[in-house]
Design a binder for these strands. Structure first.
Lengths: 164, 164
DNA sequence: TATTGTTATACTCTATAACTATA
DNA sequence: TATAGTTATAGAGTATAACAATA
C-alpha cells in the first residue's frame, strides 16, 4: 500500500473482510433487538434488561442461586449483582436465603410476587422476540442457532485459555 | 398449566422456544465478543468502542460526515456524538469542517493523525475478530452473514413501521 | 416553524479495589 | 490463606429535554 489510507474498500478486499463484515452485522442485529427489548421493558414494566435477566436466571432455578453463580451466569462482576439484587429485594421480588453449612453465602430466589411478575414480563418478552425473528422460517432459525453455537463455543474456549 | 410456575422447561416446550433460545444465544455471542474487543481497545489503545466506531465511520467517508449522519449510523442520540467528537477533537484525531450553504452543520472528518491512529487500531481489531470466528469455515461465515442479513432487514422494517 | 447541533442533567450499567465475615 | 459477598467509587454509555443558531 502506497498511501497511509486504509479505507473500507481496501479492507473489503482483504483476506479477512468476511469476518469483519460478519462481526459488524452480528453486532448490529443484537443491538437493534436489544434496544427494542430494553425500550419495551422500560415502557411496559418500568424495568431494565439486567433486572429481567437476573430474574430469568432465578426463574429457571427455583431452589435459588448463589451470588457467585449469578455473577458468572450474567457475566458481570459481583458488586453489580449485589446492587441489582438489593433493588429487587426492596421491591419484594426476590429474597436472600441462608445456605446451610456456609454462613458467608446466600441463595437468592424469586418470591411468589417476583415469580408472578416475571411470568407476566416473560410472556410479553416472548412476543417481542418472536416478532424480531419473524423474517426467518424454522429451518433458518435452526441453522442460525447451530452456527451461533459454534461461535459461542469458540469464545468460551478463548476465554478458558485466557484464564489459564 | 396448573401451577403459577413457568420454568424454562415449560417454556422450552412452548411454541416459540426456538426464537427465545436463538435470541439468548445471539445475545451471548455478541456480548462475549464485544467484551473482548472493548477490553483490548482499552488495554492496547486506551480507547473505547464508541470512539472506535465513530472513527471507523469517518474512515470510510474521507469527505466527512455530519453530526446528524453520525448519530444515525452509530444509532445513538445527538448529544452523545457531540461528546465523543469533542474528545477526539481535543486529542487532534478528528476535526469539524464547515458545510457550504448550511451554517448550522459541520462535516466531521479524521485528521491525518486520526487516520494513522485508526489504521493502527483497525489492524489489531481485524485480528481480534478473525480470532473470534476461527471456529467457522468460509461456508459457515457466509451462511451466518446471509441469515443475519435477513434478521437485520426485518429489524429495519419493524423500526420503519414504528416511525410512521 | 423545522432542523442542526450543543448543553445540562440524570440514570443505568459496569469494573476495580478495599473491606468484612467466614471457611 | 482463600472464598462469598458488600461497599465505595469512578467512568462509560445512554437518553431526554431545553436551548441557540440557522434554514
Amino acid at each position: 500500500m502506497t498511501t497511509p489510507s486504509l479505507d473500507l474498500e481496501a479492507r473489503a478486499h482483504s483476506e479477512h473482510a468476511q469476518e469483519l463484515r460478519l462481526w459488524l452485522r452480528l453486532l448490529t442485529c443484537s443491538q437493534l433487538i436489544e434496544k427494542r427489548v430494553r425500550a419495551c421493558l422500560r415502557e411496559q414494566f418500568d424495568t431494565t434488561l439486567p433486572r429481567f435477566d437476573l430474574m430469568a436466571q432465578l426463574e429457571r432455578h427455583p431452589e435459588g442461586l448463589k451470588m457467585k453463580e449469578l455473577s458468572h451466569r450474567l457475566m458481570v462482576t459481583g458488586g453489580n449483582v449485589t446492587g441489582i439484587t438489593d433493588q429487587l429485594v426492596t421491591e419484594g421480588l426476590v429474597e436472600r436465603m441462608g445456605v446451610d453449612g456456609d454462613r458467608r453465602a446466600f441463595r437468592v430466589r424469586l418470591t411468589d410476587r417476583g415469580r408472578a411478575s416475571f411470568v407476566d414480563m416473560a410472556q410479553q418478552h416472548e412476543q417481542w422476540i418472536v416478532e424480531a425473528f419473524e423474517g426467518l422460517n424454522a429451518r433458518d432459525l435452526d441453522s442460525l442457532h447451530k452456527l451461533l453455537g459454534k461461535v459461542k463455543q469458540h469464545q468460551l474456549e478463548l476465554n478458558r485459555k485466557l484464564d489459564e
